[in-house]
Nucleic acid binder design. Structure first.
Lengths: 231, 231
DNA sequence: CTTCGCAATATCCTATAGGATCTGGAGCCG
DNA sequence: CGGCTCCAGATCCTATAGGATATTGCGAAG
């Protein structure tokens, strides 16, 4: 289901969401980008996509227009679209510096504001991910990445600042991070760190929640940063 | 000229930007929204736009898809698009709370990093706005709003964190603020506050720059907040 | 063997057509 | 007079066509 992108007004249509073809294509292409089925920097050819997906150009053009505004593809007028590149080292550093500004504060605010139902949602999210030992490494990582994204989005939601949540969502942080690294093996530490954040939020201790989130993001950065040293 | 929305990769095409019709339509509709020619919440009718602009549906659909991802319009599938509403009081508060997180820090970083050329750019931006006494109030406000947006974007650029700059740009902060209030008469104070920020950046004093930016944003919030008390 | 030019083909962009869906107004009934 | 139902027209979405532009490959010349 496409997430309803809404403006700052936050007004969702009261109608149940109707899915049109361009929404499906949007999710499909976004998934191809996320999974690096389409390599960073490669061309997205509209005619080729019409053949592969068996649909006409119009929903493809519309979905590419949205992906362009999302920053996931780059339009080269009269030449086609290109998938945005993987994060460079500088962009990675910028992203985490930005996260360190927004997310510890958000965790602190969540600790201040969270009610019983909010805490139940956090608990449910923590329980939604269980590592299955036999699962292929890629699948495991994909599931963990999806959980990670939901978890961080939820903390931002519980902070009560919709601008911050939307701004973070629009960085497509987890999509970019997911494209950097495919391996498994980091879920255990990340989950432990998530748990520490939730414990602090449950206690209603803003400073502890902020510190836990800061520690988690710094650790996450440390886990991923060596990717750039390999090049 | 459409601003080139690029992903975190920051890779602009090396080609000179070619303007296609959908880019023109994007800027046109965005301008209509900014100027409240199209009132918040009203429907954008694709067939009507084809008649008014004298072009076909395709570039209109594409531009609306981009505006949807930008959060400036809301798609109601099979029913049309609606202009996102004006900021509510809560969204206004969220936006300024978010700004207070990002922009003082950015000003401090700009103070740390700004070289001679950067300082020249700041000075040029300050000089780019001159209030003309006879100018109609609306035009004066529009010019001030444009300067305000460029100024804040420049400070964020000089902070060196492209993620923060993009995230802030994607809130379309100034477009939303512009829609709230049309009157004139606030330029003098805002310009004075800008000048204080620039002075601190020029001195290379991060704390002073951060404090000046914080004071400016708080003052700006104080100037605009009473709009919600009138309702 | 390499480079340049040209042409054919691929691709992009926009116009147009038509079926599906929604909306608003008119008419009828209570 | 008000409310409900139905239908005509408006609107949306996608398919398709065609002109404009870019790309790639082949052939010829140096």
């Amino acid at each position: 289901m496409t997430d309803a992108h809404v403006g700052l007004a936050g007004q969702l249509s009261r109608l149940p969401q109707r899915q049109v073809l361009s929404d499906d294509v949007y999710e499909t292409v976004k998934g191809l980008i996320m999974d690096s089925v389409v390599q960073p920097g490669t061309r997205l050819n509209i005619d080729a996509l019409t053949r592969e997906l068996g649909i006409s150009q119009t929903p493809i053009r519309e979905s590419l227009a949205r992906l362009e505004s999302d920053g996931l593809v780059i339009k080269e007028p009269l030449r086609g679209y290109r998938v945005s590149s993987r994060l460079t080292r500088d962009e990675f550093d910028d992203l985490f510096e930005y996260r360190l500004h927004i997310e510890p504060w958000a965790a602190g605010r969540a600790a201040q504001r969270a009610g019983t139902e909010d805490l139940a949602r956090l608990k449910a999210e923590m329980l939604s991910y269980t590592d299955v030992p036999d699962r292929p490494a890629y699948e495991s990582y994909r599931a963990m990445a999806a959980h990670d994204q939901r978890f961080h989005d939820l903390v931002l939601e519980l902070s009560g600042n919709e601008t911050a949540r939307l701004s973070f969502a629009r960085t497509h942080c987890h999509l970019h991070l997911f494209r950097l690294y495919y391996g498994g093996g980091i879920a255990t530490k990340a989950l432990r760190e998530h748990k520490t954040v939730v414990t602090a939020v449950r206690k209603g201790d803003p400073e502890e929640a902020a510190a836990a989130m800061r520690a988690h993001i710094e650790a996450s950065r440390a886990r991923l940063r060596p990717i750039f040293d390999q090049e």
